[in-house]
Write a protein that binds this DNA or RNA. Structure first.
Lengths: 150, 150
DNA sequence: CAATAATCGTTTCATTGCTTAACCATTTCA
DNA sequence: TGAAATGGTTAAGCAATGAAACGATTATTG
């Protein structure tokens, strides 16, 4: 049932999300790289820390990549003075990650610029279309809650 | 005008698309890598060739990465027997890329599996929600048509 | 309570993917 | 016809990631 509708949705997804995401990646790479010498992945780590992923493991889970990969990105960010690393008092295995003031400001600057870039691209959308996109995003977000079947 | 609405849309976008895309990437990496020794990027190149990007330049434009990067990915795919490269007769600078039978079959296999994976995750959506997502994808796709301001 | 197992983070090593710069072959243009 | 532009490749270097192995700490369990 609804086989056709689901297929159509998935088809539209494949035609839209990968190239759109590639565009945004390319934009952030060009802007953040040139302006702040920050890589796209480092930007994502900062973004996720602000959103609440404050340990290496939480970041690895959120980004679906290995802990060593995160550990190295964090190391680079700490050395750039954008992230602070402190041993947790409740569990001394855990390193608690927080944005420094510089990291917070940098993240803001990139978001302001990227938001402007996206706004320019969404300018042609009507209010209805924007509402529709927001609703669709909420629907898609439900996909994230399902664990991978083993 | 509509400042709030646009901001809300962009916010929902950031909370949804990056993690969702990360999940799908991780899934393809796990499946295609283990089963076929194919990387995610190689999968994307095959996918784009099938969708009509049949030259190195077209692929670079579609993926927003450099021509050398595409050239190397194509080289690997040709050596794996998944892609065929032939000099164009109308313009001998151009290499016309086509999927081999093996490449076509491989792409089908990955799509069938990934589609199933996505379907399981979209199973909780109503018909209305699916229509909504499809419509939103079409709206977002319009963003791709705008060139980067120089 | 002691021994074992699990978890958190890191280091090391190898591989893949990307960019820039330079290059050749071909085509277009002035 | 000569110069400029285009399509693709090569080479070198950096960025991103994973796998394996490790030390430190916490949880479990007999």
């Amino acid at each position: 049932m609804q086989e056709t509708l689901l297929d159509e949705t998935i088809q539209s997804f494949w035609e839209t999300v990968p190239p759109l995401w590639g565009n945004i990646r390319a934009h952030i790479h060009a802007y953040a790289g040139v302006t702040f010498h920050l890589t796209v992945e480092q930007f994502h780590v900062l973004r996720l820390v602000r959103r609440g992923a404050r340990t290496v493991s939480a970041l690895a889970e959120a980004k679906k990549i290995s802990r060593p990969a995160i550990s190295q990105a964090v190391e680079a960010l700490v050395q750039h003075g954008l992230l602070a690393r402190a041993q947790s008092t409740s569990d001394r295995r855990v390193m608690e990650l927080t944005l420094t003031t510089a990291g917070d400001d940098l993240l803001d600057a990139i978001f302001v610029e990227t938001r402007q870039w996206m706004k320019a691209r969404l300018a042609g959308c009507s209010a209805d279309e924007l509402c529709n996109i927001t609703t669709a995003m909420l629907s898609l977000k439900k996909m994230l809650d399902l664990p991978n079947p083993e």
